[in-house]
Nucleic acid binder design. Sequence first.
DNA 1: GATGAATGAGTTTTCATTCAT
DNA 2: TATGAATGAAAACTCATTCAT
Lengths: 204, 204, 204, 204
Amino acid sequence: MNVHSFVCKFVFIRLIMDKKQAILKSVLRLVKRDGFYHLNMKKIAEEAGIAAGTIYLYFKGKEDVINALYKMIVTDFNQKVLDGYIESRSVKENFHEMLNNAIQFYLKERDYFSFIEQYTYAPFLFKENQDENFMLLLPIYKMMKEGKKQKVIKNLPDAILLSLIHGSMNTILKLHLAHKTDLNKKGIKQRFYDACWEAIAIAS
Amino acid sequence: MNVHSFVCKFVFIRLIMDKKQAILKSVLRLVKRDGFYHLNMKKIAEEAGIAAGTIYLYFKGKEDVINALYKMIVTDFNQKVLDGYIESRSVKENFHEMLNNAIQFYLKERDYFSFIEQYTYAPFLFKENQDENFMLLLPIYKMMKEGKKQKVIKNLPDAILLSLIHGSMNTILKLHLAHKTDLNKKGIKQRFYDACWEAIAIAS
Amino acid sequence: MNVHSFVCKFVFIRLIMDKKQAILKSVLRLVKRDGFYHLNMKKIAEEAGIAAGTIYLYFKGKEDVINALYKMIVTDFNQKVLDGYIESRSVKENFHEMLNNAIQFYLKERDYFSFIEQYTYAPFLFKENQDENFMLLLPIYKMMKEGKKQKVIKNLPDAILLSLIHGSMNTILKLHLAHKTDLNKKGIKQRFYDACWEAIAIAS
Amino acid sequence: MNVHSFVCKFVFIRLIMDKKQAILKSVLRLVKRDGFYHLNMKKIAEEAGIAAGTIYLYFKGKEDVINALYKMIVTDFNQKVLDGYIESRSVKENFHEMLNNAIQFYLKERDYFSFIEQYTYAPFLFKENQDENFMLLLPIYKMMKEGKKQKVIKNLPDAILLSLIHGSMNTILKLHLAHKTDLNKKGIKQRFYDACWEAIAIAS
DNA sequence: GATGAATGAGTTTTCATTCAT
DNA sequence: TATGAATGAAAACTCATTCAT
């Protein structure tokens, strides 16, 4: 492979990725705006500024688009959230960091949250692997385990701890997006993190 | 009105109600089984044991069916859950009672939960009134207010308290339905209730 | 089942059959006129005077329509042609009768021939069962066997006899439909039958 | 024109021809394998190891490819079959030779037969000239005429003679390709040729 | 010449809704 | 009321052809 063909290949891959990304981003916006129910290939194409047929060059069909988007978000999420995990830090610090990362992630990428919520609760729709639903929770599991070992987190069943953390995060985000609260208001996030930590931590 | 016409009218109304209910129950089962995405009028009719056209005698159309079902569930839920609220009891007792009622409600009517989840995250789909989404939370709001007044519940913003209660309940139910935990196993529910209460209560 | 419901059911079945038949007849006409390649569901619907969606009430899809039509023709053909077979008659008489029946069948139902020809030579198109292609030849096989037993037909391999009979019939029909000959002209059919018989018969 | 440009032109033409041939051969293989119905430009390109757009450098479009292939086969066929015709030989010998040539031609180029059959029965598809369908029959016509003149072939209408020869040849090839007989088995071809000759010849 | 991504018209198929019975 | 066949608009998907590179 000479330099020229290498450059060509690189440009080629970039363009491909850009179009794939453009399609996925369109879906994201549309699902947020109109919901899964009103999603259709024509709209996706329009939103992405391409022809309907073009989608089929990059995806097998509608389900494939949806599943690819889900995978992209999960990958992105886990990467961004796990970024905050540093072995040497205390569990509490890691907890704060990860919860903050997760919240920031969804606040920044508002459409992600809306998509994930709708994807998660659509049984048998587009789901290749039902268990993937819980992939998003992996970082939290890891942190919980360590906390229990160090006896800073209550010795409750994982499901209960998970509910207190993930569930409350989910709901506060929903309330934020529905303008029932404002996570960007000074102090709110911190109070939420503290309340969550108190919920699962052994009082010192 | 003679006795005969009275009886006729009574029977007539009963039949109407039965068929309406049959349709709604069909939707419930189908949404649980196949998800919103695969729901269609023919399936609803088949599941209800009637003809497709018959649905239109009782509902304006598909959206009307969905919305009617949502309202039915909300009404049912609020009634069953508020049933547990007794003014004279302590906030803690009322909290336990209501959380238990809510959990029992969804455990008994498993399809309700699945439907509510999917309905909630389908923006602008079938939604006449976006605020209705929060109708389910009314009993909780009432209890929180009283608890704060009596200084047994932390003086946190409603959104945070709500998240800790409603969000964690939601998630534990999801985990239960996905067989990641078993709320029917002895002690689990109680531990969950206690953990929730600790999360929001002022330590005594 | 009372008389009324019996009548209803009868009428019901008749209507169904009529529409199914109407669709198949449309396909027949279109395949003759425009060929398989230009066949599409919209045209079929138009030709049958119904909406496109209606076809899907009677058939699973395009392939199902085509295969159903093939089966209909084969059934019809075998019935009409075998009608001419009478055990007590001589092999020669039976041969004449069946060849005549086959030719008359296709002359009467010109579209059948065109369809069968196109269906037969479209490998893997719509074919559920490749061997069905030879179902049409069953009556001929039967006659050949008897003729060989009675030593009035040459002791040639079945494939050769079949070719002389079926192949030449096919070709003369094609020539007729392409106006290269006219089977309706007096004496032509008889001369063809005799030539065929001479081709396979032991000279007496 | 200097030597260099001559060589260049020669190479150029060769490449052109090679690619054209490669495309036609691809179509041949695909039509045999999947049938006309499943033929598409992308498949043709893939099978030929070129890009889809390249086909349009050599042909006007899909129909042009198909028609060009048909013409190629007809030309090839007539050349190979007429090769066997020698004025000085007897009609019988010429008949044997030509029938043998035709059979050998199709046995060697199995895909040709499949293509021709499907092309022939696709009315108005790709057909510039309906009469071309009978181009393949020219060598036979010639032989028949001579045979009738010499009174070695029955004085039957051309259509009948043609049917007995061409039709039976067609069918035996079909049976061979469908594995209902085996023309490569010793003696079968010879028995077939003899049976055909007996069918059209005046018994001596 | 060669490519193959992009197009968009055309195709198959689905499905909410209507309406004659 | 109840039916379910029929509709037709809209959806998903295909593919011959074009064109910038």
